[in-house]
């Protein structure tokens, strides 16, 4: 459903991503790995439309979506979460998720000022939708807490709920398990499998190799902004180029 062809992005003179090519099957889980600074987060930013690529193509279900801004990508069913815990700290948990799913709403300024039925109906629907997403990630009980005050695992789950509340087709998870302990990571992995069961396609960036090996159908390895390997976890882990990248020139994979 997603295909990335020879994608490149340079910031000033720095080539963050130079030649990344891979494709993702609908309903699959793809892990994107690589040493620190390999360009993984930039790649997600490119796919999600946060950053405009300087070269290459991105196709979504055949449609050329290269260079579309983030809210257009979101409208096409691409959602992402962020590397660090990054929520609207001052909002309540439910407001965070409602903010994330309101783009479907058609209520305008007049509806807001006149407090029309349409607005009320939509507000109700929005709240329900957000609560469903929160229930899915099992943090519904924290709905009215301020986002900055809940524990880290819960924040990660809220971030995930924000990603899936719009019922996207493709979810990009950027180190969703970063900073979680092994049990928490297991619970997060179970959650990601449930996303796929519910018809979503998942791409994730992760340093935790166990998670990559156990969860991914396909692994894409990026080094110095280029794809150096693509295949099943087993294939990739035997690939000499990958071993070279991790142990040789590229330093050491953090986390583990």
């Amino acid at each position: 459903m997603l295909s990335v062809e020879a994608l490149g992005k340079s910031f000033g003179g720095l080539q963050a991503v130079q030649d990344v090519t891979f494709s993702v099957e609908a309903g699959s889980i793809t892990a994107i790995i690589g040493p620190n600074g390999a360009g993984k987060s930039t790649l997600f930013n490119l796919i999600a439309g946060a950053v405009r690529p300087t070269s290459g193509r991105i196709r979504l279900n055949g449609e050329d979506v290269t260079g579309l801004p983030a809210h257009e990508m979101a409208a096409r069913g691409v959602a992402r979460t962020f590397q660090s815990t990054h929520l609207f700290q001052e909002f309540t948990v439910i407001d965070n998720v409602m903010a994330a799913c309101q783009l479907r709403g058609g209520a305008h300024l007049w509806d807001a000022l006149l407090r029309t039925d349409k607005l009320r109906r939509e507000a109700g629907a929005l709240r329900e939708q957000a609560m469903r997403a929160l229930a899915f990630v099992e943090v519904a009980h924290l709905a009215d807490r301020r986002a900055g005050t809940i524990p880290q695992e819960a924040q990660k789950r809220v971030a995930l709920a924000m990603g899936i509340a719009t019922q996207p087709k493709l979810v990009l998870l950027d180190e969703i398990a970063g900073g979680l302990n092994p049990e928490e990571t297991d619970r997060m992995m179970a959650l990601i499998r449930r996303l796929v069961d519910h018809g979503m396609t998942v791409c994730f960036v992760e340093h935790k190799l166990r998670m990559v090996m156990q969860l991914a159908d396909q692994v894409v390895v990026i080094h110095h902004g280029r794809t150096i390997a693509e295949g099943t976890p087993a294939q990739v882990s035997r690939d000499p180029a990958v071993i070279e990248a991790y142990l040789g020139g590229g330093g050491i994979a953090a986390g583990g």
Binding site: P69, A70, H71, F82, F88, Q89, A100, M162
Partner: peptide, 11 residues
């Protein structure tokens, strides 16, 4: 609170 996050979630 965050223009980046707002844009990312489709606002």
């Amino acid at each position: 609170q965050s223009e980046e996050l707002a844009a990312a979630i489709g606002i």
